[in-house]
Amino acid sequence: MRHEVLSVPVEGGGLAVHRWAGAPGAPVVVALHGLTANGLSWAPVAAALDGAVTLLAPDLRGRACSSSLPGPYGLAAHARDVSALVKWAGGVPLVLAGHSMGAFVAAVTAARHPDAARSVVLVDGGLPVPVPRGQDAEGMSEALVGPAVRRLSAEFASREQYRGFWRAHPAFDGYWSDAVEEYLQHDLAGEEPHLRSSCAEEAVRADGADVMLGSEAAGAAGRLVCPAELLWAPRGFMDQPGGLYDEEYLRAVSGDFPAAARPVPDTNHYSILTGEQGARAVARRLLARAL
């Protein structure tokens, strides 16, 4: 599905926003990506929506076409940017959606700016990540964020080499598509043979620390005054059994987050957004919230 890239004024410059236009009068959804992702990660969902809504998916501060936006970074900075995007889009409360780190951004934005959100859809993120027994929160943060930070320093001689790196990733096995490749290639900066991720390491570290260790991120979903729901993947980052959340954990936190929590079968942390089955499930819930 065709889209355009717009520049929305925010503090320090322009926020790059991918826009998939809906039919005239279609509702608007703002969709937020994960820690080292970019707005094109939402392209499979946009295809599944097929123009039923207008989807706005920014490259968040410090990523892809917004990589030149300066710090400070962190969830509060993203919330200010998203609030500015909502005002740019008309200033009316919109459906906010977020995947992984973006789910925490959506929750913090809606909690800080309740007039910006009419509803929130969290996709495999947004609730505190449970810490396994015997591991502290800082160790868990390093386990999740460390590999992402180390990848930022990797250099690739060609786009084909970068493609091969991701094709070999277990979470993308069986879920590859032209849209996935475009999203991943959108991350690259530089020229061959010196290509590397466009993500600013400072942004990734600050955002990751906020998600894993920040009190605001941990409590934002529980402070929402608008309707909200969580879609969660039963498999994890490496397509392994057991994802970020499970039914036992979600029952335990239901008092703090009383909204619906729905598993999306046969998905992992990535394919819940970029695989066909996951994208269709997310699109259905966005449409239900938007109409």
Rank of each mutant, 00 (worst) to 15 (best):
P170E: 03
L32W: 07
F172Q: 08
W42A: 13
F237D: 11
Y162A: 02
V131F: 10
P227Q: 03
D115V: 01
L55G: 05
V105D: 11
V149H: 02
A218D: 12
G278M: 07
P132H: 05
V28Q: 13
E11N: 06
V225P: 00
L35A: 03
R80P: 00
C199I: 00
A171K: 08
F237M: 13
A281N: 05
R289A: 15
Q135R: 15
S141H: 12
G146Q: 05
A171V: 12
D239K: 08
F257E: 01
G71D: 04
Y175D: 11
G236P: 02
D239L: 06
R19W: 02
G90H: 11
M212F: 15
D136V: 02
Y162Q: 01
S66M: 04
A217N: 03
T274H: 00
A46I: 09
A261C: 14
Y162G: 01
P234G: 04
E181H: 05
L188F: 05
S271Y: 01
G90L: 10
R235V: 00
Q161F: 00
S7E: 15
R285P: 03
P27T: 09
A168M: 06
R19S: 03
D187P: 00
G14K: 06
Y183G: 13
V120D: 05
R80F: 00
E276D: 14
R2C: 00
R280L: 07
L127W: 13
L75D: 02
A116C: 15
A79Y: 01
P128M: 06
R133E: 15
Y183E: 07
V8G: 12
D207F: 09
E248S: 12
A117F: 05
A76H: 11
R151V: 01
A31V: 06
Y183K: 00
A281T: 02
V108R: 10
L213F: 12
W42E: 14
